[in-house]
Design a binder for these strands. Structure first.
Lengths: 343, 343
DNA sequence: CTGTTAGCGCCTTCAC
DNA sequence: GTGAAGGCGCTAACAG
C-alpha cells in the first residue's frame, strides 16, 4: 500500500539515484552535473546529462527546496478590488510578469489582497510557501501593503511607487507627473484655457503625481489650476464628478480625466449636457485602454507601458534575489499620448 | 557560513522539533496535533496548539511535500493571447478562482500557454512543481490543451467544455446554447425577423454552441438562419464582419453578436451605414462586460457568471483531488440577459 | 494514545 | 574531480 505518487501514469518518477545508478556514478556527481557545477569532468558531465535527459529526469522541487532553502517561486500579490471590477487594470502587468518569469525560471504564486480575511491568508501563505520574493501590483485598496510587508524577509518589488518614504523600497513606476504634463499640454495646445481635472484617489502616488503634473503645467502656462474634482474610479464616479465639475465651473473647455474608466462616464454627462467633444470641450484621458478606443468619440489617452512594467518588475526582483546588484532598484518608465478624436 | 534562511529577520524559523521540545512531547505528536489527527488527547492537543501558535510555528511546505507527495498547489493555465488583448476575458474567472482557493487552503501557480515555447515550459513546470491538480481557462489559442494534458497524471478541470469527446473530462461551462436562445428570442420578441449572427471561432465549443442556439431558435420560429458571418474577436473583427454582413444581407433588422468586444466594432459600422440601433436594427451581444455598458447605445448582452465559474472550477478540482466523489465532474451554469438600449 | 524510527529526494561539506 | 554521509522538516508505519 506504499503509494508512489506517479506523476505520469505508468512511467515512475525518476530520481537522482536512478540516474546515478544508470550512469554508474554517485548521486553527488549527478547533482553537480544537473546544477552545472564547473568542477565536473566535461566528458562525464556530457554523458550524465544525456542519460538524465533520456530517462526524463526532473528535479523534485520539494526536495531541492528542503535542501537549499530556496523555492524558485515568487509571489504576485494583486488587489481583489481591481479584479472584481468590470475592467481589470491588472491583466496587462500580469501578462508582462508571466512572460518574464520563464526567462528567470521562476514560478508565480498568485495571492489576493484587499480584505482583512485575505490578508491573514496572504501572510500565512507567504510564510508557509516560503517564496523567494514577492511582487505587488499596487492599487487603491492595497496601498498599505508596503507597511504590512515591511519586514517580509524576502525582497519585494512594487508596481507603482509606494506612498510615504519610498527611498528604501524597490519599485517600477511610470512617470505619472510627465504623463499628466503631456496630457495637459495637449489640451493647452488645442487652445483650451479653462482646464479641469477629474482626479482619483489620493492613496496612490500615481493619482497624486497626475494631479501634480496637471497643476504645475497649468501654472507654468499662467492658467488657473483650481477646477478639481475627485471621484471613484468607475463610469459612475466619472459621471458624478463631471456633473459636479460642470455645475461648479460651467466655463470648462478642457478636461483631464485620470482614467479611461471614469472618462466614459464623463463623456456621457458631457453629451447629456449638450457639450460636444471635442468641439466645446476637449478631453484627454489616462490608460489608453480599450475603453478609450471604443468610446464615442474615441478618447485621446495617456499610454502606460503596463506589460513592460510587469516584465521589469520580474527582472528587478530576480536581480534582488540574486543579491549581486544594488539592494534597492527603482525604475521609472516614460508614458506617451495616444491621440484620438477627443482632442 | 551555515546560512540559515531566516524567513523573518531576527526571529529564527520554528520547526516541529522546536515546538515538540517546548511542549515536552515528540515531533510525531505535534505533527498529529497540527494535522488535526483525531486520536490525540484533546487536552494535550489544546496545549500543544497553544504553544505552537505562541511560538509562531508554520509548516514548512517543502518538507511536507517531500514527505507526503502532495504539494497543496494547483496550476491555473491561461491563454497568453487573451491576456495580451486590450480587454481580457480571463480576469473575472481568475477572481473567482483566487477567492475560492482560500477555502480549500490551496496555492495557485499561474502558468501561461499559447506559444510553443511556453508550452514546453508549461509541461516542465507542471512536472517539476508537481502540482496536485490543474485548471485551464479554455480559449481559442489553447483549445488543444486537453489533448496535451491528456495524461497529466493529476486531475484537470476546464473552464469551458473541451472540444471533441468530452465525456471523460471535467469542466465547468455555461449553457451557451441557452444563452444564444435567450438572445435570439429577445430579438424575435422585439419584432425582428431577419436576424443575423456575428459568430466567433469554431475552435471553441462556446462559439459553436452559440451558433447552434441561434440557429435552432430561428428555425423553431420559422425564420431563416443563414445570415452568418465569422470574424475575429475584436472591435476590428466585429467591424469587418458587420460590413460583410450588411453587404450580403442589406435587409438585416437584428443581429446577435457573439461578444461585446466584436459588438463595439459592429456598432460603429452600423452607425456609419446610417442604421440606427435599435430603431432600424436591434442588437444583442454576449458577455455583459463593461464594453456593453459603455457602448453607445449600451448593448443588451448575455451575462455569464464568470466569477462563479472560477469558483466552481476550484471546488470541482478540490473534490477531484480528494478522490472521494465522482471521478468526472461536469457542471453547466445558466446564463441570463441583461437588457439595455440596443433592443 | 504517544514515542521511535525510517525515509521522502536533494545538496553539501568532508575526505579521498 | 569524485564519492560517502549527514541533514533539511515532516509524515507514517510500527511498537509500546
Amino acid at each position: 500500500m506504499t503509494e508512489t505518487r506517479a506523476r505520469r501514469p505508468g512511467r515512475a518518477v525518476i530520481t537522482l539515484a536512478d540516474v546515478a545508478a544508470a550512469a554508474g556514478v554517485s548521486t553527488a556527481t549527478v547533482s553537480r552535473v544537473m546544477n552545472r557545477v564547473p568542477t565536473v569532468n566535461p566528458g562525464l558531465a556530457l554523458r550524465v546529462e544525456a542519460i538524465a535527459r533520456q530517462m526524463g529526469y526532473q528535479f523534485n522541487a520539494a526536495a531541492r527546496t528542503l535542501a537549499t532553502g530556496r523555492t524558485g517561486a515568487v509571489a504576485l500579490i494583486i488587489s481583489e478590488a481591481d479584479l472584481s471590477q468590470p475592467y481589470s487594470f491588472t491583466s496587462a502587468p500580469l501578462h508582462g510578469v508571466l512572460s518574464a518569469v520563464a526567462r528567470h525560471d521562476l514560478q508565480i504564486v498568485m495571492l489576493l489582497s484587499g480584505s482583512a480575511q485575505q490578508e491573514s491568508y496572504l501572510l500565512e501563505s507567504l510564510g508557509r510557501t516560503g517564496v523567494d520574493g514577492a511582487m505587488v501590483i499596487l492599487e487603491d485598496e492595497i496601498s498599505h501593503l508596503p507597511e504590512l510587508l515591511g519586514d517580509a524577509g524576502v525582497p519585494v518589488v512594487y508596481l507603482g511607487r509606494p506612498l510615504g518614504d519610498a527611498t528604501s523600497q524597490s519599485y517600477v513606476d511610470v512617470d505619472n507627473v510627465g504623463g499628466a504634463r503631456i496630457a495637459t499640454e495637449a489640451l493647452i495646445e488645442a487652445g483650451r484655457t479653462r482646464i479641469a481635472i477629474l482626479a482619483g484617489t489620493d492613496r496612490l502616488t500615481a493619482a497624486r503625481d497626475r494631479l501634480e503634473g496637471w497643476r504645475s503645467t497649468l501654472t507654468e502656462h499662467g492658467l488657473e489650476a483650481h477646477r478639481i474634482a475627485r471621484g471613484a474610479f468607475s463610469p459612475a464616479g466619472g459621471a458624478d464628478t463631471m456633473t459636479r465639475l460642470l455645475a461648479a465651473y460651467p466655463d470648462i473647455d478642457g478636461v483631464f480625466v485620470c482614467s479611461d474608466y471614469m472618462g466614459s462616464g464623463a463623456l456621457q454627462v458631457l453629451a447629456a449636457a449638450g457639450r460636444r467633444v471635442p468641439h466645446d470641450v476637449s478631453l484627454v484621458s489616462y490608460d489608453d485602454s480599450v475603453l478609450s478606443e471604443v468610446a464615442n468619440p474615441p478618447l485621446s489617452s495617456v499610454r502606460q507601458p503596463l506589460e513592460l512594467m510587469g516584465e521589469e518588475m520580474v527582472d528587478a526582483l530576480a536581480s534582488l534575489m540574486a543579491g549581486s546588484g544594488p539592494s534597492v532598484i527603482q525604475r521609472v518608465l516614460p508614458s506617451s499620448l495616444t491621440r484620438r478624436d477627443s482632442l
